[in-house]
Write a protein that binds this DNA or RNA. Structure first.
Lengths: 132, 132
DNA sequence: CTTCTAAATGTTATATTATTACATAATGTT
DNA sequence: AACATTATGTAATAATATAACATTTAGAAG
């Protein structure tokens, strides 16, 4: 049962942009693209991004300082994310593999720490780039 | 068989500082600390950090833009890293769990991509912070 | 429908993180 | 010694992100 989040004006503009782009986008490139829609300042972008991340509509690719629309409909909250990143063309895709997420969600070591969240980034060459 | 890397002057200064700190350090806090040793510019710090990451003496905590000394003697190259991060006190430690690393190193999905590297960051509350 | 509150917005300034470009010096190899 | 590679020094600037403050909008409670 997915909670419906009514996105605000800025949130919707920015989510739609990222979603339509189909890939990761950087904050200042988003800013540039939405200036014609009246969003003028970095903070307006970052605030929308923060909220979108919080509700799981987008995820942050930490190693790239970029944001991508969630490609996994069951992912309501960004608390368990995994991505594959091509180091040549920088293509990013979200990995939704139930075994992997089960394994990591249940992972515990001997530190006595209970993990509530994780982010995993895999790097390599995608099919296309490998065959070049 | 561990390759011996002869660190250069700046690399050694910066590695020693991070190593002795026992935790993650940020680039500009490193810069501040090493100014008395003659390292004056950000680039000098970033260059040393880049090299240290490349040879696996330190790792970058992507979600924190911080660098930590490798706590895992068998880790020559930063190609398979996992960390646990306390979201309250920001304590970070490197996870060395052979099952986990084996699982992730062998992970493959149906994207046809062969992963050569990964970085995993777990978040939660450490023992101390949990009991507060 | 009004009062209250929480969330979102707008705006300016500034902090933090990282790289470009170019010159020089030290180190290792043949 | 000549060459190539790696490291250093320095100035400028680019890219990423937040602080502080004023105002507005949207929901919830009476």
């Amino acid at each position: 049962m997915q909670k419906e989040h009514n996105l605000s004006k800025n949130q919707k503009i920015i989510f739609d942009l990222i979603d339509k782009s189909g890939g990761p986008m950087k904050a200042y490139s988003i800013l540039f693209s939405v200036q014609k829609k009246g969003i003028k300042a970095p903070l307006q972008v970052y605030r929308a991004l923060d909220k979108l991340v919080e509700i799981g509509k987008i995820h942050k690719i930490e190693s790239r300082n970029a944001f991508i629309a969630c490609q996994n409909s069951s992912c309501q909250i960004s608390k368990a994310t995994a991505f594959s990143i091509c180091e040549s063309c920088e293509n990013v895709s979200e990995i939704s593999n139930s075994k992997l997420s089960k394994y990591l969600s249940n992972f515990s070591d001997n530190s006595g720490m209970k993990y509530s969240k994780y982010n995993l980034e895999f790097f390599g060459l995608c099919k296309k780039c490998k065959s070049k």
